[in-house]
Amino acid sequence: MDIETLETGQLITDEVLLVAEARLLVDRRGQSYYSLTLNAEGGRQIEGKVWADNIAAAIEAGKGLEVLARVDEYRGQKQLNIQRYKVLGPDDYDLAAFVRTTDVDVDPAFETLFDWQRNEFTNANLKRLMAEFHDNEAFAAQFKESPAASHHHHNYRGGLIEHTLQVWQLADALSRAHGGPFDRELLLCAVALHDVGKVKSYRLVGGVSERTDVGELLEHIFISGSMVSNLWDTAVRPGVPEELAEQAARQKALLLHIILSHHGKLEWGSPVLPRTPEAVLVHFCDLLSSTLYKCFDAIQQAPEGELWTDNVYIMDQTRRLFVPPHDEGAG
């Protein structure tokens, strides 16, 4: 089903969709209904409703549905009014066809972030730390597959490595453009590691990103800091000469500071505020990656011919974004 070509009033039959999110709500008459976010093939999403009279079997995120539905429009957005549906078993459809996946080539991206045996890196402590992450095959597989969030940004297979690579490229380019005396190796090491805890905070269930119990209880910033701190103590600290122990401990603290402060504000989940130039830069690059994702995602989701998106919450305020019209006359 091509969501872009759907027309209001159109009837679709025997269409298979993946349930990305299912919410059982109650309407003003006190009747239950399902509000759904559905993935078509390729991972493109459309909202759907199953009203009380049409509810049959329970609907859960990560399940496939075969639907008979009418295309309606609500607040300028097309949605499916589902008249009948069947919950499909895992053998009834190809899950991979409905799961959004990053366009980034994850293998070279992982090497860019975690292979610190390259000549451009000289800090022995950071090289030893990064080798622990790089050579851990289980971690590498998780990092390449993991989503970066459950809703807000890069919430799909490979979203974590895509987001981290964007932050890396932004931090590298902006530090060079600014020309300030940044500690480049500390900066890039922190970028690569700032979200490693997300491999334990999020998972894909039926192709749909959801938060784990550990992620709910501890949050990814704490988990990231703990993973880095524990590996430093087991893999780096034993190899540090006694006369360099104080310098290495300070380096560890500076690295953890960037990771813990990268959300930028206490109310955004960081336990400390950024207090070094590197920490400030990582925060803004992280924020820029997630904010621009929201912008372009909203523009892509705008109905054909619409010049404005639905409301998007960015930069502490809600606003609609302008959708550039297709320039049909451009040559």
Rank of each mutant, 00 (worst) to 15 (best):
D107E: 15
Y34C: 03
F110C: 14
L113V: 04
A138P: 07
R157I: 06
Y85T: 05
A40N: 13
E145Q: 11
Q142P: 01
G62L: 08
H151P: 01
A22D: 14
A40I: 06
N81H: 10
A109G: 06
A124N: 07
Q45S: 12
T101K: 12
L160M: 06
E47W: 04
I46K: 07
R157L: 09
R84Q: 11
T112L: 07
E120N: 01
R118M: 10
N125H: 10
R28P: 01
A56K: 11
S146Y: 00
S150K: 11
G64R: 03
Y74F: 15
D115Q: 04
E145F: 07
G42R: 09
S35K: 15
P90W: 01
A57F: 08
G159K: 06
E47M: 10
H153A: 15
A61S: 14
K86T: 10
A148G: 09
Y85M: 03
D91G: 12
D91A: 13
A109H: 02
L24T: 05
K49N: 12
N54V: 02
P90G: 11
S35L: 14
G89M: 00
L65V: 05
L113M: 01
W116R: 14
W116T: 06
V50N: 10
I161D: 08
L36D: 13
V26N: 10
L38D: 14
Q83L: 14
V104N: 04
H154S: 06
G76H: 13
V106Y: 12
Y33F: 14
L126V: 05
T102R: 01
E111S: 01
V26L: 03
G42Q: 09
I59P: 08
A141W: 05
S146P: 01
H153D: 12
G42H: 02
K78R: 15
Q83G: 07
R23E: 05
A124I: 10
A149E: 11
A131P: 02
R75V: 11
T101P: 02
L18K: 02
A58L: 13
A97F: 00
Q83W: 05
Y74C: 10
W116P: 09
D135F: 10
Q83E: 15
F114Q: 00
I46N: 00
S146H: 01
G48E: 12
F143T: 11
L88E: 11
Q31E: 15
V104D: 05
D92E: 14
A148S: 09
V26T: 15
D27W: 07
A124S: 15
Q117R: 08
A69H: 04
N39P: 04
A138I: 14
V87Y: 08
N81A: 13
L38K: 04
M130H: 03
Y93D: 07
I82N: 12
E66G: 02
N155M: 01
L68V: 09
A40C: 01
D115M: 04
G64S: 06
V19E: 13
L160P: 03
V71L: 04
Q117M: 02
K86F: 00
N136Y: 10
L65T: 13
W51K: 02
R128P: 05
